[in-house]
């Protein structure tokens, strides 16, 4: 196990810098999630930590040791790839024990460690199968098993769930969280899915355009976003952003209201709009309401409600939960 220190880390391809002055401390045993839209540099940052991409500038310390020029093996990290990257000609057991066989460990030790990992991941019955004979979820578990077997200092996971279907994704999400609790190893997880980030992370690092926008616990990011970008990125359904007279009224360039922070039917001073779409999820009802001058707003109501498309509704934001932003997208203190 080891903590990591990223000091002014940067990455450039030729003259194009894609990551700028990344400063980040990751504590030993922490579960960190890099999240951001496509092209924000999250995977590149992970690959720099893994040793698969050269570091252009700055220092990478793993376990207090400068690791910029160490090979992936010397960094003692393990990585789970989005595409699983299992060796197709090897059986599950051979895949999982490959790193140990490269170290020329005794066969019985390899078998023992592979069996332990397979037990933990419920892969026991599949050890003699080839990856091509497994389902997507099983392959992903083998990829995780391959990483576990090595007992690395740091676990890196690059969008490991994005090839799985929704049901399997949430199941595997829980498994990875449990695995982290059991192993207490430092884990760095890359995803573009903010639900994964919110549900798994000790701390989330939000990246945008090669810069860190904010680092914090899921609830810090949710409640106190450091920018309009973070406010919009974290939370599902997304935060509503309103400009014009509604924002002026609260002294902001942009007013941010989360869908669950609207009260419906709040009287004449509320914002009047027409329902354009209703999504009934059972536990929640999502309304899309077209409010003149504000656009289509998303409203999330707890429980089941009767509104239908075409209904006129009155919305009022809960003022204690609103977010105010400047023209530059910076938050205005309440």
């Amino acid at each position: 196990m080891a903590g990591l220190e990223l000091k002014k880390l940067s990455k450039a391809y030729g003259n194009v810098e894609v990551l700028h002055d990344i400063n980040l401390s990751i504590a030993d045993g922490e579960f960190i999630v890099f999240v951001g839209p496509s092209g924000c540099g999250k995977s590149t940052l992970l690959r720099m930590i893994a040793g698969l991409e050269e570091i252009t500038g700055g220092d990478l310390m793993i376990g207090g040791k400068l690791s910029n020029s160490l090979s992936p093996k010397q960094r003692n990290i393990a990585m789970v790839f989005q595409s699983y990257a299992l060796y197709p000609q090897m059986t599950v057991a051979e895949n999982m024990g490959f790193s140990l066989s490269l170290e020329r460990r005794p066969k019985d030790e390899i078998a023992r460690k592979v069996n332990e990992a397979a037990e933990a991941l419920k892969l026991g019955p599949y050890l003699d199968r080839k990856p091509g004979q497994l389902s997507g979820g099983q392959r992903q578990r083998v990829a995780i098993g391959r990483a576990i077997v090595r007992q690395p200092q740091v676990f890196l996971l690059d969008e490991p769930l994005s090839n799985l279907d929704a049901a399997l994704r949430s199941e595997t999400r829980v498994e990875i969280s449990e695995l982290h609790q059991r192993m207490a190893t430092t884990m760095i997880y890359v995803t573009h899915d903010q639900v994964e980030a919110m549900t798994m992370a000790d701390r989330i690092v939000v990246l945008n355009g090669g810069y860190i926008e904010q680092v914090g616990s899921p609830m810090e990011l949710y409640n106190k976003p450091a920018s309009e970008f973070v406010a919009g990125f974290i939370g599902s359904p997304k935060m509503n952003f309103v400009k014009g007279r509604f924002a002026d009224a609260v002294g902001a360039a942009t007013l941010g209201v989360r869908p669950e922070h609207f009260v419906v039917g709040a009287g004449d001073d509320a914002w009047e709009g027409k329902v354009t779409l209703v999504e009934r999820l059972g536990h929640d009802t999502i309304l899309y309401v077209n409010v003149p001058e504000a656009g289509v707003l998303t409203v999330s109501l707890s429980g089941q409600h009767d509104q239908t498309v075409g209904d006129t509704v009155h919305l009022k934001p809960k003022m204690e939960f609103i977010h105010k932003f400047t023209n530059e997208g910076r938050p205005i203190a309440a």
Binding site: L52, K73, A85, L86, Y87, S99, L102, R150
Partner: peptide, 21 residues
């Protein structure tokens, strides 16, 4: 897939080991 080569590097294989195995 490039990821296979990268996974083997992470597993600690040398270039010759990746080529051969």
């Amino acid at each position: 897939p490039k990821a296979l080569h990268e996974a083997a590097r992470i597993d600690g294989a040398t270039e010759f080991q990746i080529y051969r195995r």
